[in-house]
Structures are given as structure tokens and as C-alpha cells.
Design a protein around this nucleic acid. Structure first.
Lengths: 262, 262
DNA sequence: TCGGTCAAGTTGTCTACTCAGATCGGTCCC
DNA sequence: GGGACCGATCTGAGTAGACAACTTGACCGA
């Protein structure tokens, strides 16, 4: 079942664009090229390495996707400061404290939190229906949340609640009425539904057009995606797609080790 | 605090490489190009669209990073089947069960699990030192794990343990000796260290060269990254970068709602 | 039948350009 | 002094190829 890897045969292909990217990476981490400063221009790198300009472009674009460098057309390519990712807490106890977990996170990190929302009734897609254990086409309340820290968008969530569950109750609109903004657990408690646990599946992909617009990033930029579902004893009562730019935020879980399993 | 999200103008740039990528994407989702089948060759696409071959290459490489297409040198570019993501459980109770959580996950999903490892002593980088609360340059045991399901790599982990902690003990080499492969919690218990909790921070980025090689994906393909640290009462005892292709796997947390916070 | 060779086709990398559009500093004129 | 303008410089996109490495299938001889 388990085998040793040999002395790690580092087969480094000697492609020029990789070599140039490596060279630049080293000069950045070595401090020769400082954050805020400009890396050598395409013309200069072409001379220095004796390659065609397309190769230099390719090398630089690797550093761009790695988040080390930012290109400004007409000006140059600049070394970015090492980013400290915003921490978005997903800890198992976060729901207990009351108030908004997002606001707490941001205030703990010295950022001013804010958000805007928009709710709309829609028919469940196949994916949403499966996640909520309802039939495709059933009515669901869809709410989009865009969270900002110091005016910059950092997180976007699209939440779905089965309309059959909340219809006619004071919590039918998640962000309206006396229980607005109180979190799924507390809101569900209002109508006598006890949320027992939640499931969160994390993956990653490129941003869609709507997501890129709301988060003010470029189309296709890497985002971390969290598919969350709240359950009341195996009955799904809410599900959401929560996402954040991969290089600007991270979801943080703190998990104790001394619990017994189910 | 709450505002409407209005409709917005969608500025679609008319670059040729994006158009060709769009065209291919549509032909794939429309069923004209089927999974397992080959997309038109570079020569054919240059004829069809009347562009230079470099532009076609760029378009195809976009689909590669999106995980829609796989290139085989000398053969062609093939449409990949729509993937159902493998579930990699991070549940709070998973460590309790004994055995390998990865093997359990894979067997539950009908896949044959396997892994290979390689350990080496290195000096702590600034990042690793900060995460382990040691000094930069201190010796650490670095272990690379590559996990496979049905022979296909699905997860890669790079683990760091402070050598000062395990030096001279039977667990100095994580994957050697009587306690090999037993997980950090159990191994630390052997030397009298009680792991109390762990922290996991999830984000996403493009794969580096080493990561792409180990996971058999292309350079820059989107990966989900999990930075895990085990603690014994606020003392970090191990930290790891765990990653999986964003489109092939997801990390799943199941969190109870009825716990009291710290 | 089996195995080896060979040619055609395909991708990966690269060259040597061109042109468009943005930036930025300096200069000149009012 | 302030603003308009200009030119040098830079990146983004594209053209029109070339060559190497690899795959694949057809063909041929033992």
C-alpha cells in the first residue's frame, strides 16, 4: 500500500520560459526585485536572456497567475507585496456567538465590514434541488450576499431556502423583517426548526461573469468555492454557494480533536 | 446596509483567442465534441478561424486550465469526461476512527486508495517557521505524500514537523518504523504529546511545477489548498500544505451546531 | 502472427517580427 | 503656473512561420 519515493528525480525541463520565470522568482524572493518595484521590461529581458519576446511574455504571465506580479499595460510589470489573506472563520462554534460571523472576523482584522443583499424567488435548478432534497423546479428563495471589507468585496454568497419551509412565516425573506441578518440557525429557530449540523464542501474554479463583477475581479480569476448545507436532522433547510478570491481570502476551520464521532 | 444589485453591462472583449476558446467550450457543452473524443487539431483550427497557430494554442490552453480538455503530445487534445468530484472528508471526528481517513474516503466511494511518501530534513522557510512557531532555518522533517485513487493522483500533501520535537524518537520519520502511517495525532501520542486541536485554512491558486508533476495535471491548473496545523495546547506540532485539483476533488467538513465555543 | 520500421500527423516550444493601446515624463504655449 | 500635446516606452495581441518530440497506424519481412 505504501511505497517509498526514490531520491526525488527532479526532472526539471530546460524550457526557456520556465527558466526565465524561475530567474525572476528567485530575484523577487531574494529581495533584488522589491514589492512595488518594476521588473525588467520585455525588451530588457529579451536582451538579457537572448530569447524572443513571446517567451518573456509567457514567463511573466506565469508569475502573474502565481500572484507574484501584476502587469499594467503601458507602464510595466510590478512586484506585488506578499498578500496576507483575509481570514474567514468557519469554526465549529462560530454560529453560537450571535451577531454576524463576518462582521466579527473583519473587526478582529481591523477592517470595516459591510454587505448588501438581494432576494428573489426562483425555481430550483437540478443542482439546488438535489442539495435541498426537493424536486427540480420547486420554488426556492434565492438570496445573493456580497460582503465587503474596507469597501473592497471579499466574499459572495448565493443562498437557497425551500419556499415550502418558510412560506408565510416572518423569515420568508432572509434579509427583511424582524429577524433579518441573524443567520440561518437563529432564523430557523424562530419557526421551530432546529438546525443540528451543517456540511461544507470546499473546492476551487475560475470565476464566472456574475461572480467576477460582484467581487470586482477579472473573469476566470481563481476563486475558492464553499458549498454549504444546513440540516435539521438530515433534512436540508438551506444551501449556499459561498466564494472568495483564492488569493485574497481563506476559509479557516478550527477543529477540536477530543470529540466522539457519530 | 442592504441595497439592490442591479443589472450591469457585460463587457465582452473580442480577442480572438477568447472567441476560439468560447467556440470550443460551446461545442463541448453542446455535445458536438464528446468526452473522450479529440478536438480539432491545431492545423484545422487555424484554417477554420483564419488565425496564427499561437492563438489556437492559447485558446486550447485556456480549456486545459479549466479542466475541460487534456492535451497529449503527438496525439491530440481530448475532451475530458465531466468529473464528479471526489469527496475528501475533513470531518471533525475523522481522526478518531483509527486507520487512514483517506483510505476510508476512497473505499466509501469505490476507489482503490494508495499513496507514496518521501521524507527529507530541510531548514524551515520563513513561512514554515512562522506556522510552527520556530526560528527560520531551524531543522524540520519534510514529508511529501502523493495519494492516488484507482492509480490516479488526487491529493498531495507536504508535511513539516519540527525536528527538535521528534529527534531521537521512534516517530522522527513519519513514514518509517513501527508507527508509520498512523496520523499525526496517534504518532504524537507515542512521544507523550497530546494533540488538542487543528486549524485548517482553505484557499486556491494555480499549481506549481512540482505539484503539477505529482498530481499529473498541467502547470497552472486550479488547485484547492489547505494549510493545516496541529496544535498541542497552542504549541504547533505539525503543519502541512494539502492540495487537490479544484475540479477533481473537494474537501468536506461536517460540523455540529450544538457545541459550546471556547 | 509477431515484431520492427517508417511516414504522417499532432502538440510543445520558439523565433522574429508587427501593430494597437496605455502610460508617463517632458516641453511648449497660453 | 497650468494645461494641452508629443514622443518614448511599455504591455497585449497577433502573424507566419520553424523545429523537436511524440503518437499512431500502415506496411513489410522473418
Amino acid at each position: 500500500m505504501s511505497t517509498q519515493i526514490g531520491p526525488e528525480s527532479e526532472t526539471t525541463p530546460d524550457h526557456k520560459y520556465l527558466q526565465i520565470a524561475d530567474d525572476l522568482r528567485r530575484r523577487i524572493s531574494g529581495g533584488e526585485l522589491r514589492p512595488g518595484g518594476r521588473i525588467p521590461s520585455r525588451a530588457e529581458l529579451t536582451r538579457r536572456h537572448g530569447v524572443a519576446s513571446a517567451i518573456v511574455s509567457r514567463a511573466v504571465s506565469i508569475l502573474v497567475t502565481e500572484g507574484l506580479v501584476e502587469c499594467r499595460q503601458g507602464s510595466g510589470a510590478y512586484v506585488l507585496p506578499p498578500k496576507t489573506r483575509l481570514q474567514l472563520s468557519r469554526a465549529w462554534y462560530r454560529e453560537v456567538r450571535g451577531g454576524s460571523p463576518f462582521a466579527g472576523d473583519m473587526e478582529a482584522q481591523g477592517k470595516a465590514p459591510a454587505w448588501r443583499t438581494h432576494s428573489r424567488m426562483v425555481h430550483a435548478t437540478a443542482d439546488v434541488a438535489r442539495r435541498l432534497a426537493i424536486a427540480e423546479g420547486d420554488p426556492v428563495m434565492r438570496t445573493v450576499y456580497v460582503y465587503t471589507a474596507d469597501e473592497a468585496p471579499v466574499q459572495r454568497a448565493v443562498s437557497y431556502e425551500p419556499y415550502a419551509l418558510t412560506q408565510g412565516t416572518p423569515i420568508a425573506l432572509p434579509e427583511d423583517g424582524p429577524h433579518a441578518g441573524r443567520g440561518v440557525r437563529d432564523r430557523m429557530a424562530v419557526i421551530g426548526v432546529t438546525v443540528t449540523h451543517r456540511s461544507e464542501a470546499v473546492s476551487a474554479r475560475g470565476a464566472t461573469i456574475e461572480e467576477a463583477r460582484d467581487l470586482r475581479i477579472s473573469l476566470g480569476v481563481i476563486v475558492t468555492v464553499l458549498r454549504r448545507t444546513y440540516f435539521a436532522d438530515d433534512l436540508p433547510v438551506e444551501t449556499a454557494d459561498i466564494l472568495a478570491p483564492g488569493d485574497a481570502a481563506e476559509f479557516v476551520y478550527v477543529l477540536p480533536m477530543d470529540q466522539a464521532g457519530p
